[in-house]
Design a binder for these strands. Structure first.
Lengths: 212, 212
DNA sequence: TGTACATCAGTGAACGCGCGTTCACTGATGTAC
DNA sequence: TGTACATCAGTGAACGCGCGTTCACTGATGTAC
């Protein structure tokens, strides 16, 4: 049964249907090949609807990305609670697995963000918008890293934001190879080892206690 | 003075002039926006010359990439000789600096390879060609890592190829953020710290000796 | 409760542009005798 | 040493296609009285 919606409710709904379709088409086609026509059609509208809800293709993607980052920060926040009783090494590995899981859930997403980043880097305004989203996301992750560091009495020679950036960079960089070999195996294990090593090598004990 | 060249010498020269122009245009415009027309023109030819020397845009880029990887392996091989007398920590940092220098020499190059990777990942044949080049390059770097490991009596819980991949992944991932903020400072130091931590955290001593 | 007008989300079509690839052709180089 | 033919690197133009953005318009919703 079709419920009667106010103009703004209807618009909000159009917007979210467009976002859902955009996500699907971007994932399937990649940023450059994804066509607004296709996105609009899959959402059941015409291209004009996209322009009525977003400034254009870039803005549509930014909206998608913002949504994505909010969800990821929330997911990692939940993870942190789950890891409360683990020792430091298990905590590192839990973090690695969570990041890897986010990758495996949507391998194409990471490639998409890479494409959008290089694209955005060529336009000062877009570049600064994307940087804003990224740094906000990384700040969220940095907070979580600080909680873990405090919990286990360690510190880093870099800001927690850089530690977050570096940890994510490992996956972002590896992904560029992984997408060339979709059949590759054992990646979860390899990644866990790498992240654990990275964080282990970076952290130093804050007080006299032994920190493995 | 114009020297008289044989047909094959002339062709070889055309090819290398096209490659040089391609490199310049790709760096300036990015993979997707770089136009073969522009490349041909900067080399002093028409588009047909490109198709007479390469199968197309993808093949042209692959040729460029192959050249690049050969140079990088050679450069790292030279570095290794220079690091012969340093201790392990200094060796790690020397490696980090060398990779960072390769980035700073041409920041755009790394973004270019990222774009080409996501592009290639959508085509099975191209994907497999690029993977071939990548893995060959990584195998070259892996050899060097093994030399260092043997020199300092350490080993890794991962294959040396994966260690090479991980080390490069750090820069490839960080680059995606760096290009959003061309003004950013202190990156050499941050990167050095990260690579040192990664390799330190990963390596374990092979014999009873202390390995810092 | 109903009427008249204003608003605006979404339509549909046109605009403007770029670009990878193909192909018949040319003219200089190479080869055979 | 010279002639006749073959080869082929590079030309120039056309082909074929895709796509982001703009804009005048429509018709349903919202507002004022």
């Amino acid at each position: 049964m079709a419920v009667r919606l106010s103009r703004s409710e209807r618009k909000e709904r159009t917007r979210s249907e467009l976002l859902a379709a955009a996500r699907a088409v971007f994932l399937r086609e990649g940023f450059h090949r994804a066509a607004l026509e296709q996105i609009a059609e899959e959402a059941g509208f015409t291209k004009g609807a996209v322009y009525s809800n977003f400034r254009g293709k870039d803005d549509l993607f930014l909206a998608l990305l913002e949504e994505h980052y909010e969800q990821r920060v929330a997911a990692h926040r939940r993870l942190l609670a789950e890891l409360e009783l683990r020792d430091l090494e298990e905590t590192r590995r839990g973090i690695a697995r969570a990041i890897y899981d986010a990758y495996e859930r949507d391998p194409g997403w990471w490639a998409l963000v890479a494409d959008f980043s290089t694209h955005a880097s060529r336009d000062p305004h877009l570049r600064s918008q994307l940087r804003g989203l990224r740094e906000q996301f990384l700040a969220g992750m940095a907070e979580l890293i600080e909680v873990v560091a405090a919990r286990h009495h360690v510190a880093f020679p870099l800001t927690s934001q850089e530690v977050a950036r570096g940890t994510g960079a490992l996956l972002r960089g590896l992904m560029l190879d992984w997408i060339l070999d979709p059949e590759g195996a054992d990646r979860a294990v390899v990644f866990e080892e790498m992240v654990a090593a990275f964080l282990r090598g970076l952290a130093f004990p804050l007080d006299g206690r032994r920190t493995p």
